[in-house]
Nucleic acid binder design. Structure first.
Lengths: 220, 220
DNA sequence: ATTTATTTTTAGATTTGTCTAAAAATATTT
DNA sequence: AAATATTTTTAGACAAATCTAAAAATAAAT
Protein backbone atom coordinates (compact mmCIF):
# COMPACT_ATOMS: atom_id res chain seq x y z
CA UNK A 1 0.00 0.00 0.00
CA UNK A 2 1.28 3.41 -0.99
CA UNK A 3 2.14 5.98 1.64
CA UNK A 4 -0.03 9.00 2.30
CA UNK A 5 0.54 12.31 4.02
CA UNK A 6 -1.19 13.04 7.30
CA UNK A 7 -3.46 15.52 5.53
CA UNK A 8 -4.40 12.96 2.90
CA UNK A 9 -5.13 10.35 5.55
CA UNK A 10 -7.33 12.75 7.46
CA UNK A 11 -9.32 13.56 4.35
CA UNK A 12 -9.75 9.89 3.46
CA UNK A 13 -10.93 9.04 6.95
CA UNK A 14 -13.33 11.95 6.97
CA UNK A 15 -14.86 11.04 3.60
CA UNK A 16 -15.39 7.52 4.91
CA UNK A 17 -17.31 8.73 7.94
CA UNK A 18 -19.43 11.14 5.89
CA UNK A 19 -20.32 8.64 3.20
CA UNK A 20 -21.46 6.17 5.87
CA UNK A 21 -24.30 8.58 6.51
CA UNK A 22 -24.99 10.21 3.17
CA UNK A 23 -23.73 7.91 0.42
CA UNK A 24 -22.27 10.61 -1.81
CA UNK A 25 -20.28 13.32 -0.07
CA UNK A 26 -20.17 16.96 -1.17
CA UNK A 27 -17.42 19.54 -0.95
CA UNK A 28 -18.90 21.84 1.66
CA UNK A 29 -19.73 18.99 4.02
CA UNK A 30 -16.15 17.75 3.92
CA UNK A 31 -14.79 21.27 4.33
CA UNK A 32 -16.97 21.81 7.40
CA UNK A 33 -15.95 18.50 8.94
CA UNK A 34 -12.26 19.09 8.23
CA UNK A 35 -12.43 22.68 9.47
CA UNK A 36 -11.02 23.98 6.23
CA UNK A 37 -12.24 25.81 3.12
CA UNK A 38 -14.09 24.41 0.13
CA UNK A 39 -11.30 25.47 -2.21
CA UNK A 40 -8.78 23.46 -0.21
CA UNK A 41 -11.02 20.43 -0.36
CA UNK A 42 -11.29 20.69 -4.14
CA UNK A 43 -7.49 20.69 -4.37
CA UNK A 44 -7.27 17.61 -2.21
CA UNK A 45 -10.02 15.84 -4.16
CA UNK A 46 -8.06 16.21 -7.38
CA UNK A 47 -5.03 14.71 -5.76
CA UNK A 48 -6.93 11.80 -4.28
CA UNK A 49 -8.75 11.13 -7.54
CA UNK A 50 -5.40 10.92 -9.32
CA UNK A 51 -4.26 8.37 -6.74
CA UNK A 52 -7.43 6.35 -7.33
CA UNK A 53 -8.70 6.84 -3.80
CA UNK A 54 -11.87 8.65 -4.85
CA UNK A 55 -14.52 8.48 -7.52
CA UNK A 56 -15.07 12.13 -8.22
CA UNK A 57 -16.76 14.14 -10.99
CA UNK A 58 -16.64 17.91 -10.83
CA UNK A 59 -19.72 19.39 -9.18
CA UNK A 60 -21.17 15.90 -8.75
CA UNK A 61 -20.01 14.83 -5.29
CA UNK A 62 -17.65 11.97 -4.54
CA UNK A 63 -17.08 8.72 -2.65
CA UNK A 64 -14.21 6.39 -1.90
CA UNK A 65 -13.08 3.62 -4.24
CA UNK A 66 -12.60 0.13 -2.82
CA UNK A 67 -8.94 1.01 -2.35
CA UNK A 68 -9.96 4.21 -0.59
CA UNK A 69 -12.24 2.35 1.78
CA UNK A 70 -9.49 -0.09 2.62
CA UNK A 71 -7.16 2.73 3.52
CA UNK A 72 -9.84 4.49 5.57
CA UNK A 73 -10.51 1.31 7.52
CA UNK A 74 -6.85 0.79 8.26
CA UNK A 75 -6.64 4.32 9.69
CA UNK A 76 -9.80 3.81 11.72
CA UNK A 77 -8.39 0.52 12.97
CA UNK A 78 -5.25 2.28 14.19
CA UNK A 79 -7.24 5.06 15.79
CA UNK A 80 -9.47 2.70 17.74
CA UNK A 81 -6.70 0.37 18.84
CA UNK A 82 -4.74 3.32 20.19
CA UNK A 83 -7.84 4.60 21.98
CA UNK A 84 -8.23 1.20 23.56
CA UNK A 85 -4.58 1.19 24.58
CA UNK A 86 -4.78 4.64 26.09
CA UNK A 87 -7.82 3.90 28.25
CA UNK A 88 -7.30 0.28 29.19
CA UNK A 89 -3.52 0.17 29.55
CA UNK A 90 -2.56 3.73 30.41
CA UNK A 91 -5.67 4.60 32.39
CA UNK A 92 -6.71 7.67 30.40
CA UNK A 93 -10.17 9.17 30.71
CA UNK A 94 -12.38 8.33 27.73
CA UNK A 95 -12.77 12.02 26.98
CA UNK A 96 -9.07 12.64 26.41
CA UNK A 97 -8.08 9.76 24.19
CA UNK A 98 -9.59 10.93 20.92
CA UNK A 99 -7.21 13.85 20.39
CA UNK A 100 -4.14 11.75 21.12
CA UNK A 101 -5.32 8.91 18.90
CA UNK A 102 -5.72 11.45 16.09
CA UNK A 103 -1.96 11.76 16.17
CA UNK A 104 -1.10 8.13 16.81
CA UNK A 105 -3.24 6.86 13.94
CA UNK A 106 -0.71 8.26 11.47
CA UNK A 107 2.23 6.17 12.69
CA UNK A 108 2.91 4.03 9.66
CA UNK A 109 4.30 0.66 10.81
CA UNK A 110 1.92 -2.21 10.02
CA UNK A 111 3.90 -4.52 12.27
CA UNK A 112 3.39 -2.10 15.15
CA UNK A 113 -0.36 -2.26 14.76
CA UNK A 114 -0.41 -6.02 14.47
CA UNK A 115 1.66 -6.39 17.63
CA UNK A 116 -0.39 -3.75 19.46
CA UNK A 117 -3.57 -5.58 18.51
CA UNK A 118 -2.21 -8.84 19.94
CA UNK A 119 -0.91 -7.10 23.05
CA UNK A 120 -4.38 -5.71 23.70
CA UNK A 121 -5.97 -9.13 23.17
CA UNK A 122 -7.54 -8.31 19.79
CA UNK A 123 -10.37 -6.19 21.16
CA UNK A 124 -13.56 -5.85 19.09
CA UNK A 125 -14.71 -2.44 20.30
CA UNK A 126 -12.97 0.75 21.30
CA UNK A 127 -13.81 2.56 24.54
CA UNK A 128 -16.55 4.56 22.83
CA UNK A 129 -18.20 1.34 21.71
CA UNK A 130 -17.18 1.67 18.07
CA UNK A 131 -16.12 -1.55 16.37
CA UNK A 132 -12.42 -2.07 15.57
CA UNK A 133 -11.81 -3.33 12.01
CA UNK A 134 -9.44 -6.30 11.72
CA UNK A 135 -6.29 -6.26 9.59
CA UNK A 136 -8.33 -7.09 6.48
CA UNK A 137 -10.65 -4.16 7.13
CA UNK A 138 -13.45 -6.40 8.30
CA UNK A 139 -15.68 -4.82 10.93
CA UNK A 140 -16.99 -7.09 13.66
CA UNK A 141 -20.71 -7.65 13.38
CA UNK A 142 -21.24 -8.87 16.90
CA UNK A 143 -24.16 -7.01 18.30
CA UNK A 144 -23.81 -4.89 21.39
CA UNK A 145 -26.44 -4.76 24.09
CA UNK A 146 -26.90 -2.48 27.02
CA UNK A 147 -27.39 -4.11 30.39
CA UNK A 148 -31.15 -3.57 30.27
CA UNK A 149 -31.28 -5.67 27.10
CA UNK A 150 -28.87 -8.37 28.30
CA UNK A 151 -30.62 -11.67 29.19
CA UNK A 152 -30.29 -12.66 32.83
CA UNK A 153 -27.46 -15.06 33.70
CA UNK A 154 -25.83 -14.53 30.26
CA UNK A 155 -22.04 -14.04 30.56
CA UNK A 156 -20.93 -10.96 28.63
CA UNK A 157 -17.99 -8.58 28.20
CA UNK A 158 -18.19 -4.84 28.77
CA UNK A 159 -17.44 -3.14 25.47
CA UNK A 160 -18.26 0.50 26.04
CA UNK A 161 -20.04 3.10 28.10
CA UNK A 162 -22.15 5.73 26.39
CA UNK A 163 -22.52 8.25 29.21
CA UNK A 164 -19.00 9.33 30.03
CA UNK A 165 -19.73 11.88 32.71
CA UNK A 166 -17.35 12.20 35.62
CA UNK A 167 -19.92 10.68 37.99
CA UNK A 168 -20.41 7.65 35.76
CA UNK A 169 -16.66 7.08 35.41
CA UNK A 170 -16.22 7.48 39.14
CA UNK A 171 -18.84 4.83 39.78
CA UNK A 172 -17.43 2.37 37.27
CA UNK A 173 -14.00 2.83 38.72
CA UNK A 174 -15.35 2.10 42.19
CA UNK A 175 -16.96 -1.16 41.07
CA UNK A 176 -13.88 -2.02 38.96
CA UNK A 177 -15.98 -2.17 35.79
CA UNK A 178 -13.93 -1.36 32.70
CA UNK A 179 -13.63 -2.19 29.02
CA UNK A 180 -13.14 -5.95 28.72
CA UNK A 181 -14.51 -6.78 32.17
CA UNK A 182 -16.57 -10.01 32.24
CA UNK A 183 -19.98 -9.37 33.70
CA UNK A 184 -23.24 -11.22 34.37
CA UNK A 185 -26.70 -10.16 35.54
CA UNK A 186 -27.65 -12.30 38.51
CA UNK A 187 -30.96 -10.75 39.48
CA UNK A 188 -33.44 -8.22 38.09
CA UNK A 189 -35.76 -6.08 40.14
CA UNK A 190 -38.72 -5.38 37.95
CA UNK A 191 -40.33 -2.77 40.20
CA UNK A 192 -37.62 -0.18 39.47
CA UNK A 193 -35.56 -1.78 36.68
CA UNK A 194 -32.46 -2.08 38.85
CA UNK A 195 -30.36 -5.22 38.77
CA UNK A 196 -27.72 -7.18 40.63
CA UNK A 197 -24.60 -7.69 38.58
CA UNK A 198 -21.69 -10.06 39.15
CA UNK A 199 -18.31 -8.66 38.13
CA UNK A 200 -15.36 -10.89 37.16
CA UNK A 201 -16.22 -13.72 39.56
CA UNK A 202 -15.81 -11.74 42.68
CA UNK A 203 -17.91 -8.77 43.55
CA UNK A 204 -21.54 -8.15 42.91
CA UNK A 205 -23.23 -4.78 42.88
CA UNK A 206 -26.62 -3.20 42.32
CA UNK A 207 -27.00 -0.92 39.31
CA UNK A 208 -29.96 1.35 38.62
CA UNK A 209 -31.74 1.14 35.27
CA UNK A 210 -30.41 4.63 34.60
CA UNK A 211 -26.85 3.36 34.86
CA UNK A 212 -27.48 -0.05 33.28
CA UNK A 213 -28.70 1.36 30.01
CA UNK A 214 -25.44 3.22 29.54
CA UNK A 215 -23.25 0.16 29.92
CA UNK A 216 -22.79 -1.84 26.74
CA UNK A 217 -21.68 -5.44 26.47
CA UNK A 218 -21.36 -8.19 23.90
CA UNK A 219 -21.30 -11.96 24.14
CA UNK A 220 -20.22 -15.09 22.21
CA UNK B 1 6.81 24.98 25.99
CA UNK B 2 6.16 26.08 22.42
CA UNK B 3 5.28 23.60 19.74
CA UNK B 4 7.74 22.56 17.05
CA UNK B 5 7.38 20.91 13.68
CA UNK B 6 8.68 17.38 13.19
CA UNK B 7 11.52 18.73 11.10
CA UNK B 8 12.48 21.23 13.77
CA UNK B 9 12.39 18.54 16.44
CA UNK B 10 14.59 16.27 14.37
CA UNK B 11 17.14 19.02 13.87
CA UNK B 12 17.16 19.89 17.58
CA UNK B 13 17.66 16.27 18.57
CA UNK B 14 20.41 15.83 16.03
CA UNK B 15 22.30 18.93 17.18
CA UNK B 16 22.10 17.62 20.72
CA UNK B 17 23.70 14.31 19.79
CA UNK B 18 26.42 15.96 17.71
CA UNK B 19 27.34 18.53 20.34
CA UNK B 20 27.69 15.76 22.92
CA UNK B 21 30.73 14.66 20.95
CA UNK B 22 32.14 17.83 19.46
CA UNK B 23 31.01 20.78 21.57
CA UNK B 24 30.31 23.16 18.69
CA UNK B 25 28.49 21.69 15.68
CA UNK B 26 29.06 22.75 12.09
CA UNK B 27 26.70 22.92 9.15
CA UNK B 28 28.06 20.07 7.05
CA UNK B 29 28.11 17.65 9.97
CA UNK B 30 24.47 18.31 10.70
CA UNK B 31 23.56 18.08 7.02
CA UNK B 32 25.30 14.70 6.78
CA UNK B 33 23.61 13.38 9.90
CA UNK B 34 20.19 14.65 8.81
CA UNK B 35 20.67 13.34 5.27
CA UNK B 36 19.97 16.75 3.79
CA UNK B 37 21.88 19.59 2.15
CA UNK B 38 23.98 22.28 3.83
CA UNK B 39 21.76 25.01 2.39
CA UNK B 40 18.69 23.46 4.01
CA UNK B 41 20.50 23.32 7.32
CA UNK B 42 21.36 26.99 7.14
CA UNK B 43 17.70 27.83 6.61
CA UNK B 44 16.72 25.76 9.62
CA UNK B 45 19.46 27.30 11.77
CA UNK B 46 18.11 30.78 11.14
CA UNK B 47 14.67 29.66 12.16
CA UNK B 48 15.88 27.95 15.33
CA UNK B 49 18.07 30.90 16.26
CA UNK B 50 15.05 33.17 16.01
CA UNK B 51 13.18 30.84 18.34
CA UNK B 52 16.07 30.97 20.82
CA UNK B 53 16.84 27.28 20.49
CA UNK B 54 20.35 27.78 19.15
CA UNK B 55 23.32 30.02 19.72
CA UNK B 56 24.47 30.57 16.18
CA UNK B 57 26.84 33.00 14.46
CA UNK B 58 27.22 32.81 10.69
CA UNK B 59 30.20 30.68 9.65
CA UNK B 60 31.05 30.08 13.32
CA UNK B 61 29.22 26.87 14.18
CA UNK B 62 26.41 26.52 16.68
CA UNK B 63 25.10 24.82 19.80
CA UNK B 64 21.84 24.55 21.71
CA UNK B 65 20.71 27.08 24.30
CA UNK B 66 19.53 25.80 27.68
CA UNK B 67 15.99 25.89 26.30
CA UNK B 68 17.19 23.94 23.25
CA UNK B 69 18.76 21.26 25.40
CA UNK B 70 15.61 20.91 27.42
CA UNK B 71 13.59 20.33 24.29
CA UNK B 72 16.14 17.87 22.92
CA UNK B 73 16.03 15.88 26.14
CA UNK B 74 12.25 15.72 26.13
CA UNK B 75 12.35 14.29 22.60
CA UNK B 76 15.04 11.79 23.54
CA UNK B 77 12.98 10.82 26.57
CA UNK B 78 10.00 10.09 24.36
CA UNK B 79 12.09 8.16 21.89
CA UNK B 80 13.61 5.91 24.51
CA UNK B 81 10.38 5.29 26.41
CA UNK B 82 8.71 4.22 23.18
CA UNK B 83 11.66 1.94 22.36
CA UNK B 84 11.28 0.38 25.76
CA UNK B 85 7.56 -0.08 25.23
CA UNK B 86 8.05 -1.64 21.80
CA UNK B 87 10.56 -4.24 22.98
CA UNK B 88 9.37 -5.05 26.46
CA UNK B 89 5.60 -4.80 26.00
CA UNK B 90 5.06 -5.56 22.32
CA UNK B 91 7.93 -8.01 21.91
CA UNK B 92 9.71 -6.23 19.06
CA UNK B 93 13.28 -7.10 18.08
CA UNK B 94 15.77 -4.52 19.27
CA UNK B 95 16.83 -3.86 15.71
CA UNK B 96 13.40 -2.71 14.54
CA UNK B 97 12.35 -0.33 17.28
CA UNK B 98 14.49 2.65 16.38
CA UNK B 99 12.69 3.51 13.15
CA UNK B 100 9.26 3.29 14.75
CA UNK B 101 10.33 5.33 17.77
CA UNK B 102 11.54 8.02 15.35
CA UNK B 103 7.89 8.53 14.47
CA UNK B 104 6.40 8.05 17.92
CA UNK B 105 8.75 10.57 19.54
CA UNK B 106 6.86 13.40 17.80
CA UNK B 107 3.50 12.68 19.39
CA UNK B 108 2.98 15.78 21.43
CA UNK B 109 0.94 14.91 24.54
CA UNK B 110 2.93 15.35 27.74
CA UNK B 111 0.30 13.46 29.70
CA UNK B 112 0.73 10.51 27.36
CA UNK B 113 4.43 10.32 28.08
CA UNK B 114 3.95 10.65 31.81
CA UNK B 115 1.39 7.85 31.83
CA UNK B 116 3.49 5.70 29.52
CA UNK B 117 6.48 6.17 31.81
CA UNK B 118 4.44 5.01 34.81
CA UNK B 119 2.94 2.11 32.86
CA UNK B 120 6.45 0.92 32.00
CA UNK B 121 7.57 1.23 35.62
CA UNK B 122 9.75 4.32 35.09
CA UNK B 123 12.63 2.50 33.41
CA UNK B 124 16.10 4.04 33.56
CA UNK B 125 17.55 2.62 30.36
CA UNK B 126 16.19 1.87 26.93
CA UNK B 127 16.77 -1.50 25.23
CA UNK B 128 20.02 -0.26 23.68
CA UNK B 129 21.31 0.64 27.13
CA UNK B 130 20.94 4.38 26.68
CA UNK B 131 19.68 6.28 29.73
CA UNK B 132 16.13 7.65 29.70
CA UNK B 133 15.90 11.28 30.89
CA UNK B 134 13.19 11.97 33.48
CA UNK B 135 10.45 14.57 32.98
CA UNK B 136 12.82 17.33 34.15
CA UNK B 137 15.42 16.29 31.58
CA UNK B 138 17.64 14.71 34.20
CA UNK B 139 19.64 11.74 32.95
CA UNK B 140 20.15 8.86 35.37
CA UNK B 141 23.75 8.56 36.44
CA UNK B 142 23.55 5.00 37.70
CA UNK B 143 26.44 3.11 36.22
CA UNK B 144 25.90 0.08 34.07
CA UNK B 145 28.07 -3.02 34.27
CA UNK B 146 28.37 -6.01 32.05
CA UNK B 147 28.08 -9.40 33.71
CA UNK B 148 31.86 -9.89 33.69
CA UNK B 149 32.19 -6.77 35.83
CA UNK B 150 29.26 -7.53 38.15
CA UNK B 151 30.35 -8.64 41.63
CA UNK B 152 29.33 -12.17 42.53
CA UNK B 153 26.06 -12.53 44.50
CA UNK B 154 25.12 -8.89 43.80
CA UNK B 155 21.46 -8.58 42.79
CA UNK B 156 21.10 -6.55 39.59
CA UNK B 157 18.63 -5.69 36.83
CA UNK B 158 19.27 -6.34 33.14
CA UNK B 159 19.31 -2.97 31.40
CA UNK B 160 20.53 -3.71 27.89
CA UNK B 161 22.32 -6.07 25.55
CA UNK B 162 25.01 -4.76 23.25
CA UNK B 163 25.28 -7.64 20.79
CA UNK B 164 21.88 -7.95 19.24
CA UNK B 165 22.51 -10.76 16.79
CA UNK B 166 19.77 -13.27 16.13
CA UNK B 167 21.68 -15.98 17.99
CA UNK B 168 22.08 -13.80 21.03
CA UNK B 169 18.40 -12.85 21.07
CA UNK B 170 17.42 -16.48 20.60
CA UNK B 171 19.50 -17.46 23.59
CA UNK B 172 18.17 -14.71 25.83
CA UNK B 173 14.65 -15.61 24.87
CA UNK B 174 15.29 -19.22 25.77
CA UNK B 175 16.59 -18.31 29.21
CA UNK B 176 13.82 -15.71 29.63
CA UNK B 177 16.35 -12.94 30.12
CA UNK B 178 14.97 -9.56 29.06
CA UNK B 179 15.17 -5.87 29.88
CA UNK B 180 14.18 -5.46 33.51
CA UNK B 181 14.86 -9.07 34.50
CA UNK B 182 16.38 -9.41 37.99
CA UNK B 183 19.58 -11.43 37.83
CA UNK B 184 22.39 -12.58 40.11
CA UNK B 185 25.73 -14.32 39.55
CA UNK B 186 25.88 -17.38 41.78
CA UNK B 187 29.19 -18.89 40.69
CA UNK B 188 32.18 -17.94 38.56
CA UNK B 189 34.42 -20.36 36.71
CA UNK B 190 37.78 -18.67 36.45
CA UNK B 191 39.34 -21.18 34.06
CA UNK B 192 37.17 -20.04 31.14
CA UNK B 193 35.39 -16.95 32.47
CA UNK B 194 31.97 -18.61 32.32
CA UNK B 195 29.48 -18.16 35.12
CA UNK B 196 26.35 -19.55 36.69
CA UNK B 197 23.53 -17.02 36.78
CA UNK B 198 20.27 -17.08 38.72
CA UNK B 199 17.33 -15.54 36.87
CA UNK B 200 14.30 -14.08 38.68
CA UNK B 201 14.34 -16.55 41.55
CA UNK B 202 13.73 -19.57 39.49
CA UNK B 203 16.06 -20.81 36.84
CA UNK B 204 19.79 -20.77 36.74
CA UNK B 205 21.94 -21.05 33.66
CA UNK B 206 25.56 -21.07 32.56
CA UNK B 207 26.72 -18.19 30.41
CA UNK B 208 30.05 -18.02 28.57
CA UNK B 209 32.30 -15.00 29.07
CA UNK B 210 31.60 -14.14 25.44
CA UNK B 211 27.90 -13.83 26.20
CA UNK B 212 28.29 -12.34 29.68
CA UNK B 213 30.20 -9.31 28.48
CA UNK B 214 27.35 -8.36 26.18
CA UNK B 215 24.71 -8.34 28.91
CA UNK B 216 24.50 -5.09 30.85
CA UNK B 217 22.95 -4.61 34.25
CA UNK B 218 22.64 -1.99 36.95
CA UNK B 219 22.03 -2.19 40.69
CA UNK B 220 20.86 -0.06 43.67
C1' DA C 1 50.96 36.01 1.32
C1' DT C 2 48.77 34.35 -2.64
C1' DT C 3 46.49 30.70 -4.47
C1' DT C 4 43.56 26.85 -3.97
C1' DA C 5 40.22 24.17 -1.57
C1' DT C 6 36.54 23.76 1.60
C1' DT C 7 32.69 25.33 4.05
C1' DT C 8 28.82 28.10 4.50
C1' DT C 9 25.50 31.21 2.99
C1' DT C 10 22.49 33.53 -0.36
C1' DA C 11 19.39 33.79 -4.21
C1' DG C 12 16.02 31.85 -6.57
C1' DA C 13 13.12 27.66 -7.77
C1' DT C 14 9.97 23.75 -6.41
C1' DT C 15 6.45 21.12 -3.88
C1' DT C 16 2.73 20.68 -0.57
C1' DG C 17 -1.07 22.36 1.66
C1' DT C 18 -3.44 25.99 2.52
C1' DC C 19 -5.90 30.55 1.66
C1' DT C 20 -8.97 34.60 -0.67
C1' DA C 21 -11.53 36.39 -4.27
C1' DA C 22 -13.72 35.82 -8.44
C1' DA C 23 -15.83 32.91 -11.95
C1' DA C 24 -18.57 29.00 -13.29
C1' DA C 25 -21.93 25.49 -12.53
C1' DT C 26 -25.93 23.95 -10.34
C1' DA C 27 -30.25 24.60 -7.47
C1' DT C 28 -34.05 27.21 -5.92
C1' DT C 29 -37.55 30.57 -6.07
C1' DT C 30 -40.72 33.51 -7.87
C1' DA D 1 -38.19 30.30 -17.67
C1' DA D 2 -35.79 34.12 -15.71
C1' DA D 3 -33.83 35.82 -11.62
C1' DT D 4 -31.63 34.79 -7.43
C1' DA D 5 -29.08 31.98 -4.28
C1' DT D 6 -25.94 28.36 -3.30
C1' DT D 7 -22.24 25.36 -4.24
C1' DT D 8 -18.09 24.30 -6.36
C1' DT D 9 -14.16 25.25 -8.96
C1' DT D 10 -10.40 28.10 -10.80
C1' DA D 11 -6.78 31.44 -10.56
C1' DG D 12 -3.41 33.31 -8.15
C1' DA D 13 -0.99 34.10 -3.57
C1' DC D 14 1.51 32.58 0.57
C1' DA D 15 4.26 29.96 4.08
C1' DA D 16 7.11 25.94 5.12
C1' DA D 17 10.65 22.93 3.91
C1' DT D 18 13.32 21.56 0.74
C1' DC D 19 16.55 21.84 -3.43
C1' DT D 20 20.43 23.60 -7.04
C1' DA D 21 23.74 26.74 -8.44
C1' DA D 22 26.45 30.53 -7.54
C1' DA D 23 28.64 33.75 -4.35
C1' DA D 24 30.99 34.77 -0.06
C1' DA D 25 33.69 33.60 3.89
C1' DT D 26 37.09 30.84 5.97
C1' DA D 27 40.82 27.37 6.05
C1' DA D 28 44.74 25.02 4.01
C1' DA D 29 48.62 24.62 1.01
C1' DT D 30 52.21 26.05 -1.61
Amino acid sequence: MTKFTISEENHIKCVYHLQQQTGLVNTNALAAEMQTKAASVTDMLKKLKLKKILQYEKYKGFKLTEMGKKIALSIIRKHRLWEYFLTVKLGFDWAKVHAIAEELEHISSEELIQKLDDFLGNPSFDPHGDPIPDSFGKIPTIKQYNLVQLPIKKKAIVSSVSNQSAQMLEMLKHYKIGIGTPIQITKQFLFDGSMEVKILKNTTCILSEQVAKNIFVYYE
